[in-house]
Amino acid sequence: MQQFSVDIQPTNNENIVKFIANSFLTQAKSFEFKNIDDAKPSPLAQQLFYLPFVKTVYISQNFIAIEKYNIVEWADVQEEVAESISTYLNSGKPVIIESEAPSKIPVSVYAESTPNPAVLKFVANKPLAEGTFEFKNIDEASLAPLAKELFTFPFVKEIFISANYVSVMKYNVAEWDEITMELREFIRNYLEMGKPVLDDAILTEEKRTSETSEENNRTRTDLDKEIISILDEYIKPAVAGDGGHIAFDSFDENTKTVRVILQGACSGCPSSTVTLKNGIETMLREMLNGKVAHVEAING
C-alpha cells in the first residue's frame, strides 16, 4: 500500500490552508463541503468537521484545503490537522464515495488581462448572468453568492459580473501572479458545484430596473437615442471584451456633453480618460456631426 505524506501550504487567504498529498486523492474532480451533512460523500471531510474550527473543506486532485473560523490560528493547529489527514489516508479508507457524490457540471475558467492593471477578467465556458452587476463591497453582494464568497479573499476590492465572466478588482496588497490561479480555481470549483451566481431577488430587481430604463427611453430625445445606439453598437462590445461596461447617463445640450457610467475594469482604469477622449468622444463627435463635443464619466 502506498504511504501518503502531507505537506502544509498557506494561501493568500489567511483562513485557508492547503494540505497537499504526495499522490492524487480524486480523479480529476473537485468537491466543496460546507458542513458535516453536506460532506456525506466524503468520510474524510466528515471527520474533519468534528474539529470545531473547520468551516469549509475543499478536496481537489492532490490536496485538501480547509477554511477555518476565526477561533484559532493555523499556526496552533495545522500540524495536528496534517497528521490527522495523513493517518486517514494511510488507513486505506475512501476519500470520496463516488456513488454519494453529487453530479457536477464540467466548467472551464481562464483569466484575461484588462487595460486596468488592478482588474483581471475570469471567463467561464457558460453564461453567468443576463445584465450587468457591480459590487463595491461584501454588503452590496448580499444577493450575489459568488461575489460574496469572493469578497472573503482579503485582496478582493470590487466584483463585476456580466455575460460569461467575472471581473475582479484587487487591492495593492498582492500581485496577480500570486493570486490568479487561486481565484481561477475557486471560481471554477464554485461553478462546477452548481452553486448560484446571483439570487432570484437580485434578478427580479434587475428586471424592474430594465423596465424602468425602457420607460425612460420613451421620454428621451432623439439625440439621446442616437447616442445610446452608438454606444450600444460600437462601444459596449469592445468595453465588454476588456471586462468592463459603459452606460449612458445623460446629455447636456448646452455644453454638448455626454455623461457616462463606467463599471467593471473601466472603473478607475488609468487609460479610461484616454479612451473617453480619443475613442468615444471622437466617434460621437464625428458620427453625430458635431452635436457632441465632450464625453465625461460621472464615476471612476
Rank of each mutant, 00 (worst) to 15 (best):
residue 42 S to E: 02
residue 28 A to H: 13
residue 159 I to T: 07
residue 62 N to V: 04
residue 247 A to Y: 01
residue 73 E to P: 00
residue 83 E to R: 15
residue 131 G to H: 12
residue 155 F to H: 11
residue 37 D to E: 14
residue 232 D to A: 15
residue 98 E to R: 06
residue 282 T to E: 11
residue 51 L to S: 00
residue 252 D to G: 06
residue 139 D to N: 13
residue 114 T to L: 12
residue 289 N to Y: 07
residue 79 E to D: 14
residue 81 V to D: 05
residue 263 Q to N: 08
residue 52 P to I: 02
residue 256 K to P: 01
residue 160 F to M: 06
residue 32 E to V: 15
residue 262 L to E: 01
residue 296 E to V: 13
residue 280 I to A: 01
residue 182 E to K: 03
residue 121 K to Q: 07
residue 265 A to F: 04
residue 64 I to Q: 06
residue 202 I to C: 03
residue 76 D to Q: 12
residue 290 G to R: 06
residue 71 I to H: 10
residue 293 A to D: 13
residue 209 T to G: 10
residue 164 N to E: 01
residue 155 F to W: 12
residue 58 Y to K: 14
residue 244 G to D: 05
residue 260 V to Q: 05
residue 244 G to N: 02
residue 140 E to C: 03
residue 180 T to L: 02
residue 141 A to T: 12
residue 209 T to W: 06
residue 252 D to E: 13
residue 278 N to D: 11
residue 25 L to N: 09
residue 53 F to V: 01
residue 27 Q to A: 15
residue 280 I to V: 09
residue 71 I to S: 12
residue 247 A to G: 03
residue 243 G to R: 06
residue 263 Q to K: 10
residue 262 L to F: 06
residue 206 E to W: 07
residue 43 P to W: 04
residue 139 D to G: 09
residue 56 T to L: 10
residue 154 P to T: 03
residue 72 V to L: 03
residue 58 Y to S: 13
residue 98 E to T: 14
residue 102 P to F: 05
residue 169 M to D: 11
residue 43 P to F: 03
residue 253 E to W: 04
residue 180 T to F: 02
residue 126 K to Y: 00
residue 225 K to L: 15
residue 108 S to V: 12
residue 237 P to F: 06
residue 86 S to L: 05
residue 101 A to M: 04
residue 15 N to K: 04
residue 174 A to Q: 05
residue 115 P to V: 08
residue 254 N to D: 11
residue 186 F to I: 04
residue 72 V to N: 01
residue 81 V to G: 02
residue 224 D to L: 12
residue 161 I to D: 03
residue 260 V to R: 02
residue 291 K to I: 04
residue 74 W to T: 12
residue 273 T to M: 05
residue 234 Y to K: 14
residue 77 V to I: 15
residue 196 P to F: 02
residue 260 V to A: 05
residue 175 E to D: 12
residue 60 S to I: 11
residue 200 D to G: 09
residue 149 E to N: 10
residue 268 G to F: 09
residue 131 G to L: 12
residue 283 M to P: 02
residue 102 P to I: 11
residue 291 K to V: 00
residue 109 V to I: 13
residue 38 D to P: 14
residue 129 A to S: 07
residue 280 I to K: 00
residue 185 E to H: 00
residue 62 N to S: 13
residue 278 N to Y: 04
residue 138 I to E: 10
residue 132 T to H: 13
residue 15 N to W: 00
residue 140 E to D: 13
residue 206 E to A: 15
